[in-house]
Each structure stands twice: as structure tokens, then as C-alpha cells.
Amino acid sequence: MATVKFKYKGEEKEVDISKIKKVWRVGKMISFTWDEGGGKTGRGAVSEKDAPKELLQMLEKQ
């Protein structure tokens, strides 16, 4: 499965696309949330040019 790689608060992170729940556009950035388990929700953002095609497809479906 595809993953999204991004930096959050200076830390490199990687999230499996299948865990992503919500995707939206903020200017030229793609923001998203995912389920971290245990009732926690993670947040992240990646530039439109660095976003994997699967993430962009999720954005178009909404």
C-alpha cells in the first residue's frame, strides 16, 4: 500500500494511505487526518507537488 511521507513539528513521519480518514486542500497544501489507534487522531500536511497520486485521488472523491 502507498504511504505519505511528511514532516510534522520537525519530525519525519510516514503514514499508510489506508489509515487516512479525511483529506482537504489548504492553498497549495494537502492536509489530512488519520487514525493512530487508541482513539487518537493524527494530523499532517504535504505540498501538492509531493503528494502521492492516491492521496490526490482521495481528495477528488470528496
Rank of each mutant, 00 (worst) to 15 (best):
K61L: 13
F6S: 02
W34A: 01
E48M: 07
G39Q: 14
I17N: 02
E36Y: 09
I17F: 02
F6L: 03
K61G: 14
A2P: 14
M1H: 15
K19T: 06
E11N: 06
E60V: 08
T3P: 02
E12V: 10
K40L: 08
G38K: 08
G38Q: 09
G38C: 15
L56C: 07
I20P: 00
K13E: 03
R25V: 11
K13A: 05
M29F: 10
Q57I: 05
Y8L: 04
F32M: 11
M58T: 06
K28I: 04
W34K: 00
V4S: 00
G39P: 10
M58V: 05
R43A: 07
I30W: 02
S18V: 07
L56G: 03
F6E: 00
S47M: 13
A2R: 06
K7F: 06
T3R: 06
R25A: 15
T3L: 07
D16Q: 12
K9G: 15
E11F: 11
M58Y: 14
K7S: 08
G44H: 10
W34V: 02
K9V: 02
V4M: 01
K19I: 13
V15K: 02
R43Y: 04
I20M: 12
E11Q: 05
E36L: 04
L59W: 03
V15Y: 01
T33M: 10
F6P: 00
S31P: 03
G38R: 09
W34I: 02
G10M: 03
S31I: 08
D16N: 12
K7E: 12
G38A: 12
M29G: 13
A2M: 15
K49D: 11
V26I: 08
I20H: 00
E60L: 03
M58S: 03
L56P: 01
F6Y: 13
E14W: 03
K21H: 14
E12H: 06
D50S: 12
G37V: 15
K7N: 12
E48T: 05
E54V: 13
G10S: 03
K13W: 06
D50N: 06
K19F: 12
Q62A: 04
V23L: 12
L59K: 01
G44A: 13
M29K: 07
E48G: 05
S47L: 05
P52I: 10
A45S: 14
E12L: 09
P52S: 06
K5F: 03
V26W: 04
E11S: 05
E14R: 05
T41S: 14
K13P: 00
V15N: 00
R43L: 08
K7R: 08
M58C: 07
G37H: 10
T33K: 08
G42P: 06
L56Y: 06
S31F: 06
G37S: 13
S18G: 11
L56E: 14
D35H: 03
E54S: 09
W34Q: 00
V15G: 01
E36P: 13
S18F: 12
L59Q: 01
G42M: 07
T33S: 15
K28H: 05
F32Q: 00
F6A: 02
M58P: 01
G37I: 15
M29R: 10
Q62G: 09
V26D: 09
S18Q: 11
D50F: 04
F32N: 00
A51V: 07
A51L: 03
Q62V: 05
A51T: 09
G39M: 11
D16A: 11
D16L: 09
Y8K: 02
L56V: 12
I20S: 00
L59H: 03
V26T: 06
G27Y: 10
Y8V: 15
W24V: 10
T3S: 07
M1C: 14
K53T: 07
E48Y: 08
F6H: 01
D35K: 03
K49M: 09
L56I: 11
K40I: 15
K53D: 05
A2S: 05
I17H: 02
Q57M: 09
L55I: 03
K61I: 12
V4P: 00
I30F: 04
K13S: 03
E14S: 05
D35G: 07
A45D: 15
V46P: 00
K49S: 08
T3Y: 05
K19W: 12
I20D: 00
E14G: 02
K61S: 14
E54N: 06
K22S: 12
E11T: 09
Y8I: 03
L55R: 00
S18W: 05
G42I: 10
K28T: 11
G37T: 14
G10V: 01
K28W: 03
K7M: 13
E11C: 14
P52T: 06
G10R: 02
I20A: 01
T3Q: 05
G37E: 12
K28S: 06
K5A: 03
R43F: 05
A2Y: 04
L59G: 02
G44L: 07
G42L: 09
E36F: 07
D35Y: 07
V26C: 15
V23R: 01
E14Y: 06
K53G: 11
E11G: 09
E12T: 10
L55Y: 01
K61C: 15
D35A: 13
G44Q: 10
L55E: 00
V15C: 06
T3K: 08
M29E: 15
W24E: 06
M58D: 03
E36V: 12
E48F: 04
E12W: 09
F6C: 04
E11L: 13
